[in-house]
């Protein structure tokens, strides 16, 4: 398997709560099926590394970043908003602005539930490209795929329809395997999920026609 480099890695700054687990999985799958490597703070299992230090390290390794702000809302118990995602978007933006020449090549996609909702809590990013997914995994996959095609100019990325179909097939297969092995799919750690998706994609290879003439 080829080694990963800066231009292959995509930082995922998405909500990991149990309310929309398939959205999170769809995002990871779309990145892998497009030929990129998903990275996120959940891959860190080293208790000695500070969470923020780990996030900074991962952001430094990634040329691309996906920031889903759809879950920035008041916590029902504390009545306080969750700021982790806008904060990590700020770190990514800062790296792009103040980093080395390599860091200046960073690209990011901001995702929202509804159009213009972000302007109510983070109006500074007004004017940036913000895609909406309406908590729909098909729209999320399409947004991630289209943005990766535009940002990377790669011609080997499958169509959104293909990725969607394959994601549904993967979900069906992995759920079947988990039921057979009495494994709780919903609590599967990020690294294990990525490993299963990678292996599934390797066993279900498809050949793509180039999007653009060479």
């Amino acid at each position: 398997m080829p080694s990963t480099n800066y231009s292959d890695q995509v930082f995922i700054n998405c909500p990991f709560d149990g309310q929309y687990p398939d959205m999170y999985r769809a995002c990871i799958f779309a990145i892998l099926d497009s030929g990129f490597v998903p990275r996120c703070s959940r891959e860190v299992d080293n208790a000695t590394e500070f969470r923020l230090a780990a996030i900074v390290r991962i952001i430094r390794d990634c040329r691309y970043g996906i920031h889903d702000l759809s879950r920035v809302e008041l916590d029902p118990r504390s009545r306080l908003p969750r700021f982790n995602m806008p904060f990590e978007l700020g770190v990514f933006y800062g790296a792009q602005q103040f980093g080395s020449a390599r860091q200046k090549r960073k690209h990011c996609l901001v995702l929202e539930k509804e159009k213009y909702r972000y302007q109510k809590f983070i109006s500074d990013i007004a004017g940036s490209d913000v895609a909406q997914h309406q908590n729909n995994q098909n729209l999320l996959i399409l947004a991630v795929r289209n943005w990766l095609v535009t940002a990377s100019r790669r011609t080997t990325i499958p169509s959104g329809t293909d990725i969607n179909k394959r994601f549904k097939l993967f979900q069906s297969d992995i759920r079947h395997i988990c039921i057979k092995g009495s494994i709780d799919y919903d609590s599967m750690p990020f690294v294990e999920l990525v490993k299963n998706m990678t292996d599934w994609l390797r066993h279900n290879q498809m050949v793509h026609a180039p999007l653009f003439a060479p």
Binding site: P2, T4, G35, E43, D61, T155, Q205, H208, P210
Partner: peptide
């Protein structure tokens, strides 16, 4: 036709 390469997470 080109084959897309699935890359390994570090």
């Amino acid at each position: 036709m080109t084959n897309r390469i699935i890359k390994q997470h570090p």
